[in-house]
């Protein structure tokens, strides 16, 4: 099983998914990330899915779980880089990902985190 690396940039954790995710990698990422948020006192998490070709119900559930879990650990999550075909497919699959903040790219994701944190110090 491949593990997804977690990068730290200031108080933000960045996860860029570059592998074909198998279910075990998804579960490992959830756990690794929860620990990393606490260990680094992270206030923001950015999940970059630019390279992800499909988001099925399992990966979709991971995104929602990470967002909820981070919130409980006092960090905000933004998912960036969703491909248009992935968005269309997710809606048809029936996954709305309510509760998951999104931005078009990494830069906008960082700006959104700054904005959110400015509003709720």
């Amino acid at each position: 099983m491949e593990r997804v690396p977690i990068l730290k940039l200031g108080d933000i954790l960045i996860i860029s998914i570059q592998i074909d995710l198998e279910d075990q990698s998804v579960l490992a990422l959830q756990e690794d990330l929860a620990e990393a948020v606490v260990a680094h006192s992270a206030r923001g998490v950015i999940i970059d899915i630019t390279a992800v070709e499909i988001v099925d119900s399992f990966i979709g559930r991971m995104l929602a779980t990470i967002a909820a879990m981070s919130r409980m650990l006092d960090a905000q999550t933004v998912v960036v880089g969703m491909r248009p075909a992935v968005a269309i497919t997710l809606v048809e699959l029936g996954l709305s990902l309510g509760g998951v903040r999104t931005a078009l790219n990494l830069e906008k994701g960082v700006a959104l985190l700054d904005h959110v944190r400015g509003a709720t110090p």
């Binding site: 070709e53 499909i54 099925d56 075909a85 992935v86 269309i88 497919t89 699959l93």
Partner: peptide
């Protein structure tokens, strides 16, 4: 393609 691969994954 994205739709059918997603269905296959499920």
């Amino acid at each position: 393609q994205t739709k059918v691969v997603t269905a296959a994954s499920e």
